[in-house]
Design a protein around this nucleic acid. Structure first.
Lengths: 237, 237
DNA sequence: GCACATTTGTCCGTATGTATT
DNA sequence: CAATACATACGGACAAATGTG
């Protein structure tokens, strides 16, 4: 069992154990690659492969040179694995766009319903609303602000997992939706509608109208994707 | 930009492009590591690092030798990145158990509410029910069957993303909950209750009582974790 | 059964770039 | 301006697995 385990997986297991038993905390640095290699009796190549995987998972970050930003240190970026992996799986066409939209709908309507009106992230949401209200934003810029608005909104519920997933899902189909949105017949009319809906959602959240906010955001997302041509599988919630 | 990009990321980008443009499909093999290295003008080490990352993402699988199981071939296992990354992030203590439970509750109650009574996965769910009804299953075995039952149940809604996430979330806190369950004062009584609740949920799904099934499963999960000592942040749904 | 080719797995040595001291 | 520490990257070499002739 242990003998047949690949060398880099041994390193992965070692790091996981070190973290689980609190010998490695966030912000701390891993030993140098050569040191780990010697300790675990594997080659540096294997250590590097493991570090690459951990990097992709958002568990560590490595930098060259010396000093505070150098070496390999433990971080906590839960969004990293979701975003990149989701994009690739979506590309394989084995993850239907409809499933992604449906999931995003579920997560976001929940998040909005459970948002805390006093949350700081709602302040950034408001700032993004104002930025989108500028008359001279183009479709692409609007789309980006739109994405940030939805993420900020969903952070107000205080569940890092849900807001992280939400953001990653949107990223995964970002290009997909953008391609369709910029080709809309009447972008100006669509933008006006989206602005009004955003304000309606934001106001409902701030007023503590949880149920209404949830319904508004669901309708907003459904309309958005229906216009973009992604078939909504069924109404979530 | 391109010049400063790390060598293995170039390989990752290349693979993603190959997949996105449909030159690389599921089941197909990547060129040999040395071939890729030569094509992209990077070292074999860099190619291997990229393959390790893709492997962790559940995008490829590599085997030694020659033949059908050899080489590096494209697969589609969306659960891989979730399960492993979730476990590690949970270990860093920057992903609260309450958030995980809350998310699982949301996903599973949705899945049950949207389950198709005619789905094949409900047949396996029924088989698992019967296995759990055996009087001589121990706590650990019961726990494992329990986990499989919930996954099978959530697959009946037909959204691969949601059932995958659901399963991974349960995996991430699997050990956590198991440790507490096996130390229950009266395991026998708990098992009896869980059995009854499982049957209730299953029957409601089969009868098309979506709303009821959803409420039952929510109560079931909440009770389960309350007993295990994880503070439920708030009722989801 | 045996030699051979192919391909991943693993390791080592070495050179380079970066940043602190 | 060195010396040091570290990740990055490359190429060569051999082992192990799995087929084919």
């Amino acid at each position: 069992m242990v003998a047949t385990m690949k060398a880099h997986q041994m390193v992965l297991g070692w790091v996981e154990q070190e973290i689980a038993e609190d010998r490695l905390r966030i912000g701390q640095r891993l030993p140098a690659e050569r040191t780990i290699a010697e300790q675990l009796q594997v080659s540096r190549t294997s250590v590097r492969e493991a570090i690459r995987v951990l990097e992709a998972m958002g568990i560590v970050r490595s930098g060259v040179g010396s000093g505070p930003d150098a070496g390999t240190l433990v971080i906590a970026d839960p969004s990293a694995p979701f975003t990149s992996a989701m994009r690739l799986h979506f590309a394989t066409s084995h993850l239907p766009a409809g499933d992604i939209v449906q999931t995003r709908l579920l997560l976001e309507s929940w998040a909005v319903e459970h948002a805390d009106p006093a949350s700081a992230s709602l302040e950034s949401a408001h700032a993004l609303l104002e930025a989108m209200d500028e008359p001279n934003v183009d479709a692409e810029r609007f789309h980006q602000l739109d994405a940030e608005f939805h993420v900020a909104l969903s952070q107000a519920a205080g569940n890092v997992l849900i807001s992280t997933m939400m953001g990653s899902l949107r990223d995964a189909i970002n290009q997909y939706t953008l391609d369709l949105i910029v080709n809309l017949p009447d972008w100006s009319a669509t933008a006006t509608r989206l602005r009004a809906e955003h304000h309606g959602i934001y106001d409902a959240v701030m007023a503590g109208e949880a149920r209404l906010a949830s319904e508004l955001v669901a309708a907003h997302i459904e309309g958005y994707y229906r216009e973009a041509g992604i078939p909504p599988r069924e109404a979530a919630q």
